[in-house]
Amino acid sequence: MTLAPTAAFHRALIVGAGSGLSASLARLFAGHGLSVALAARTTEKLAPLCAETGARAFTCDAGNQASVADLFTAVEAAIGSPDVVIYNASGRLRGPIETLDPADVARALEISAFGGFLVGQQAARRMIPQHHGAILFTGASASIKGYPQSAPFAMGKFALRGLAQSMARELAPQGVHVAHFVIDGGIASASRPVPAEAPDSLLDPDAIALTYWQILHQPRSAWTWEIELRPWVERF
């Protein structure tokens, strides 16, 4: 059987960019010839990655409506309208439920969930007329499991998952692929190396990025809206 060809992608925007998964995604996309835009609240930390990949950095507060709208306008002017948009921002806040500051909780939800809506809305407005594009949301173990003293993170990630599921059902018939990635486990980094006595016990960010790339290029006859990723030793 011959699979239908996948439409090409040319411009990627990663919101909530940093040195981990976002950096792996930026390298992978740039290596395949995509123009890459990186958005973060502070962009100084992105300078080495931009120099390495040729990506452009943009300042954005993902939980602020005006800031997100300005981001898409600026990205369009710099590289054109993105046909891949990845929401990788999270608001992490831990503490006993009885002592959490409600204002801090609201801000965490604003970043984890409301920001996903703002970015997804701006992306959808541009992709629907083209009947083409992909909007990818990064989830976590907390997307499906609420842990003790982690209510704000679970609330935000549960909401982001619901947003992704709703958008996938709404936008798939219009040619826009929406997918949610449950990253169920710790991600290896320079500050969190894989233990020598337990190889492959942490998620490799390059391996995660490769899965994003594979989902991005699924034939539309077999799109997935959600996938879980975890190390082979992770309990679930």
Results as ranks from 00 to 15, higher is better:
46 L>N: 03
217 H>M: 09
217 H>N: 13
168 A>T: 01
11 R>D: 13
1 M>F: 14
182 V>C: 08
82 P>R: 02
134 A>P: 07
29 F>E: 12
15 V>D: 02
152 P>R: 10
35 S>H: 14
145 K>N: 14
72 F>V: 02
32 H>K: 02
110 E>N: 13
221 S>C: 10
225 W>I: 03
151 A>H: 06
227 I>V: 14
198 A>I: 06
81 S>H: 09
154 A>F: 08
47 A>N: 12
176 V>L: 04
59 T>P: 00
73 T>P: 02
66 A>C: 02
86 I>M: 05
146 G>M: 13
10 H>L: 07
119 V>E: 06
185 G>V: 07
87 Y>I: 01
69 A>C: 03
82 P>C: 11
137 F>K: 00
190 A>Q: 06
96 P>T: 11
70 D>P: 02
155 M>R: 08
199 P>Q: 12
189 S>M: 15
67 S>P: 05
16 G>T: 01
216 L>R: 03
117 F>I: 03
199 P>E: 09
217 H>S: 12
107 R>S: 09
122 Q>K: 04
149 Q>V: 10
73 T>W: 08
200 D>Q: 12
205 P>T: 06
4 A>C: 11
197 E>C: 10
116 G>I: 00
6 T>W: 14
104 D>P: 10
172 A>K: 02
82 P>L: 10
211 T>I: 15
160 L>T: 00
173 P>M: 04
112 S>G: 00
67 S>K: 09
25 L>T: 04
2 T>A: 15
115 G>R: 01
180 H>P: 00
29 F>R: 05
57 A>G: 03
101 D>H: 10
219 P>F: 02
71 L>R: 03
21 L>D: 04
19 S>D: 12
18 G>I: 05
81 S>L: 13
226 E>N: 00
98 E>T: 09
131 H>A: 15
24 S>P: 10
146 G>E: 12
194 V>G: 01
88 N>D: 05
146 G>S: 12
127 M>A: 05
105 V>P: 03
208 I>K: 00
48 P>T: 07
167 M>N: 07
167 M>Q: 11
138 T>F: 09
234 E>Q: 11
92 R>S: 12
175 G>Q: 03
102 P>F: 11
98 E>G: 05
49 L>H: 04
37 A>P: 07
96 P>H: 06
112 S>F: 09
159 A>R: 09
165 Q>M: 13
200 D>I: 06
134 A>L: 04
100 L>A: 06
83 D>P: 02
75 V>H: 08
60 C>P: 04
157 K>H: 08
31 G>N: 09
145 K>Y: 14
232 W>S: 14
212 Y>W: 05
55 A>S: 10
34 L>I: 08
120 G>V: 00
4 A>P: 06
54 G>Y: 13
129 P>I: 03
76 E>S: 15
72 F>G: 01
149 Q>A: 11
80 G>V: 01
157 K>G: 09
27 R>V: 13
212 Y>L: 10
236 F>R: 14
24 S>Y: 06
105 V>E: 08
97 I>K: 00
168 A>C: 12
215 I>V: 15
149 Q>F: 15
175 G>P: 02
41 R>V: 06
219 P>N: 13
74 A>K: 11
195 P>W: 07
22 S>K: 00
152 P>H: 10
128 I>R: 00
224 T>D: 15
27 R>W: 10
199 P>G: 14
162 G>A: 09
27 R>N: 12
69 A>V: 13
13 L>K: 00
9 F>I: 09
82 P>W: 08
44 E>M: 11
